[in-house]
Computed example of a mutant assay.
Amino acid sequence: MSLEHVVDDIKDEARARAEEIRAEAEDDAEAIIAEAEADAEEIKEERAAEVEAQIDQEREQAVSSANLEAKQQRLEARRDVLADVREDVEAALAELSGDRRESLTQSLIDEAATEFDDDATVSVYGRSDDQELIEEILTEYDGFSFAGDRDCLGGVVVESETSRVRVNNTFDSVLDTVWDENLKELSAHLFEQ
């Protein structure tokens, strides 16, 4: 064998070995690329799931916030309606006249009178527009006299210094009591759903 032959054999072996190494390197590179692509796909899917979860959470928060705001607006609208109804009732009470006003005022004075002794000196206060009416009704009561004006819708405030009793029988106080006792029922009636 000649030296040339030996050199050619070594070259052939070296080429074959180089080819093997290159084939192994390509296989390794393909495996690394496949693993990287799989990792990238997994990371992409995880990120997509995280983004979807965040979108769902933000959507729920937005819906919850919108529902709360809508509920607050409904409550505010209901308060406004109730305030309007209250104003209308107060206006109707202030405008009462004639026999109806006289009858209610008489009843309120009668009720208040039961709180005082027969010999008590009793001061009665009322709306300035009702002074004449109150004075006329008080002619039926011994020791009762009109003592001055009260800023109210009608009715009377009756008091006696001797017994330290004060009875607030104004239309305002009666309305407050009736309003508080019936507010739930009134709301249910006005805002039936």
Rank of each mutant, 00 (worst) to 15 (best):
D9K: 12
D118N: 13
E42T: 14
A188C: 13
W179V: 06
A66V: 03
V158L: 07
E24L: 02
E13D: 11
E19N: 13
V122R: 01
E181T: 12
R59C: 07
S103E: 15
E69R: 12
E69M: 12
V124K: 08
C152Q: 09
A48T: 10
A53G: 08
D130R: 00
E185I: 15
D80A: 10
V85N: 02
A188R: 14
A91H: 05
E185V: 09
D180I: 09
V174H: 06
A40G: 06
L153I: 07
Q61D: 05
E159D: 08
I43R: 09
D129S: 15
A83Y: 08
I55T: 11
L82C: 03
R100G: 02
E4L: 13
S163N: 01
M1N: 05
D176G: 04
D118I: 11
A70L: 10
A40D: 04
Q73W: 14
D9I: 09
W179S: 05
E90M: 13
R47F: 15
S97W: 09
L138W: 04
E30P: 13
K184I: 15
A147V: 03
E159Y: 01
S163I: 03
S97C: 05
V165F: 00
Q72I: 09
A40K: 08
A120F: 07
A40Y: 04
V85K: 02
Q61W: 00
I10F: 06
E20Q: 13
D12N: 10
V165K: 01
A25T: 11
S123H: 09
N67L: 10
A38K: 00
D118S: 12
A38R: 01
V157S: 00
E50K: 12
F171S: 07
A25W: 13
L3K: 04
L186V: 08
E4F: 13
E46N: 11
K71L: 15
V157R: 00
V51K: 08
R127A: 14
F146Q: 02
E132P: 07
A70N: 11
E4A: 15
D80G: 11
N169T: 02
I134S: 00
S65M: 06
E19L: 11
S160K: 00
A36M: 00
V178N: 00
L3N: 08
Q54A: 11
S103G: 12
E132Y: 15
T121D: 14
S2D: 13
A48Q: 10
E13M: 06
E41V: 12
D8Q: 04
K71A: 12
L175V: 05
Q57K: 04
D27C: 03
V81C: 05
D88V: 14
E24N: 09
A36F: 01
S97N: 13
N67C: 12
E4D: 15
E30G: 07
L186T: 15
K184N: 12
R15P: 12
L3G: 06
S97D: 14
D129T: 15
S128V: 12
E111W: 04
D117V: 12
D39K: 14
L190G: 10
V89K: 07
I32M: 09
A83F: 11
